[in-house]
C-alpha cells in the first residue's frame, strides 16, 4: 500500500481492469470417474510396499523365534558365557551393553545438545556455519566401521584405553553424535521465534531464554531423536569389532575400564562360529530376541516421551 495502490484504486472505479475470462472449465463425467478410480487405486499401490517390508520382517522374526525356542530361558539370561552351548548365558553380555549405554547417553546428550544450542542460537549465520552444518550432516552418514577405526586410533591406542568399555562407549558416542546434533538442531529450530521474542522483550538474557523457553519446548524433539540414535548405537557391531573386543569374556564387567562384550557383537561371534558348533545359531537367535526387546523398549520410550511432552502452537 503505497502511492501506486492509490492509482490502482482510482482506475478500478472506472472499471478499466474488469476481469474477463478467456477459458471455461467444463465437467467431463467420464474423466472425473477415471480420476476417482485412479485415486482409490493409489491407496492399494502404496500399501503394497508396506506389505513387502512387513513380510520380510515377519519372516525374520519367525525364524529367530523358532531358533530361540528352548534356548531363551532364565539360565540363559543370568548365566555366564561358556564355550559349551548348553551352559552358555549372556548376563555379562547384557551388562556390557548396559555399561555402554551408560556411557553413550550422557556423553552424546551433553555434547550433542550443547553443540546444537551453539549452532542454532549463538553461531552467526555465515559461510562457516554452513560449512560446519554440512559436515555434521555428512558425518551422520559415514559408515560405522570408519568410526571404529577412529576410535581404535584415538581411544584405544593414543589414550591407551585398549578394548575397554570406555573406549567402546566413546567410539559409539562419536558414531551417533552427528545424528543427535542434527536432530537437536531441528528441534531447536522448530521453537517459534515469537516465544523467544516474548522472553527477550521482558528483559531476559539469551541464556535465560534458552533455558526457560527454548529447551522446554525443544526437549521432546531432542529426546525422541536422541533415544532413537542411542538405540542405534546399542545395535552397532562394526565399530566394536574394529576395536578388537575379545571373543570370549568369562567375567562380568564391574567398571568402565574392564574388557567387555556386548549384545550385537556376541551375536556376530556366535554366528561366525556356527560352522564349528551348530547350536551357536540358537544362542545367537536367543540373543537377537533379547536385543530386539531392548530396542523395542527404548523406541517405545521415545514415542511415549514425544506424546507426553508434545505441545501445540
Amino acid at each position: 500500500m503505497n502511492y501506486e495502490s492509490q492509482f490502482i484504486k482510482e482506475n478500478k472505479s472506472e472499471s478499466k481492469y474488469e476481469y474477463v475470462s478467456t477459458y471455461k472449465i467444463e465437467i467431463d463425467q467420464k474423466r472425473t470417474t477415471r480420476r476417482i478410480k485412479l485415486s482409490n487405486a493409489s491407496r492399494y499401490i502404496f500399501s503394497l510396499s508396506l506389505v513387502f517390508a512387513l513380510s520380510v520382517l515377519v519372516i525374520l522374526l519367525y525364524r529367530i523365534g523358532v531358533d530361540s525356542i528352548g534356548w531363551l530361558n532364565f539360565n540363559f539370561l543370568t548365566g555366564r558365557l561358556s564355550i559349551f552351548p548348553e551352559k552358555a548365558g549372556i548376563f555379562s553380555v547384557i551388562m556390557g551393553s548396559v555399561f555402554l549405554t551408560l556411557i553413550v547417553i550422557p556423553v552424546t546428550l551433553i555434547l550433542g545438545v550443547s553443540t546444537a544450542i551453539y549452532l542454532e542460537e549463538y553461531a552467526s549465520s555465515g559461510k562457516i556455519r554452513r560449512i560446519i552444518n554440512t559436515n555434521i550432516s555428512n558425518l551422520a552418514s559415514v559408515p560405522s566401521v570408519i568410526f571404529g577405526l577412529l576410535g581404535l586410533t584415538v581411544f584405544s591406542r593414543m589414550l591407551n584405553l585398549g578394548s575397554s568399555i570406555l573406549a567402546g562407549g566413546l567410539t559409539l558416542s562419536l558414531l551417533v553424535l552427528p545424528i543427535i546434533v542434527v536432530s537437536s538442531q531441528e528441534a531447536i529450530k522448530a521453537v517459534p521465534g515469537f516465544l523467544k521474542e516474548a522472553s527477550l522483550a521482558m528483559g531476559a538474557t539469551k541464556w535465560t531464554t534458552i533455558r526457560k523457553v527454548v529447551l522446554p519446548v525443544a526437549i521432546p524433539g531432542i529426546l525422541t531423536g536422541s533415544i532413537l540414535s542411542i538405540s542405534r548405537a546399542i545395535g552397532e557391531t562394526a565399530p566394536l569389532v574394529v576395536l578388537g573386543i575379545p571373543t570370549l569374556i568369562m567375567t562380568t564387567p564391574t567398571n568402565i575400564f574392564d574388557d567387555f562384550t556386548a549384545l550385537p557383537i556376541q551375536i556376530y561371534y556366535w554366528t561366525l562360529d556356527t560352522v564349528l558348533t551348530p547350536e551357536y545359531a540358537n544362542l545367537a537367535a536367543a540373543t537377537i530376541v533379547v536385543l530386539l526387546v531392548v530396542l523395542f523398549i527404548m523406541n517405545s520410550a521415545a514415542i511415549i516421551i514425544r506424546n507426553k511432552f508434545q505441545k501445540k502452537f
Binding site: F194, L195, L200, G203, A204, K311
Partner: peptide, 19 residues
Amino acid sequence: VEELRTKVGMVFQKPNPFP
C-alpha cells in the same frame, strides 16, 4: 538491553503466550 527491556515492555502483533 536487559535493563532497558525491563523498563520498556512489549506486546506483539500475534498473541504469544508461552506454552
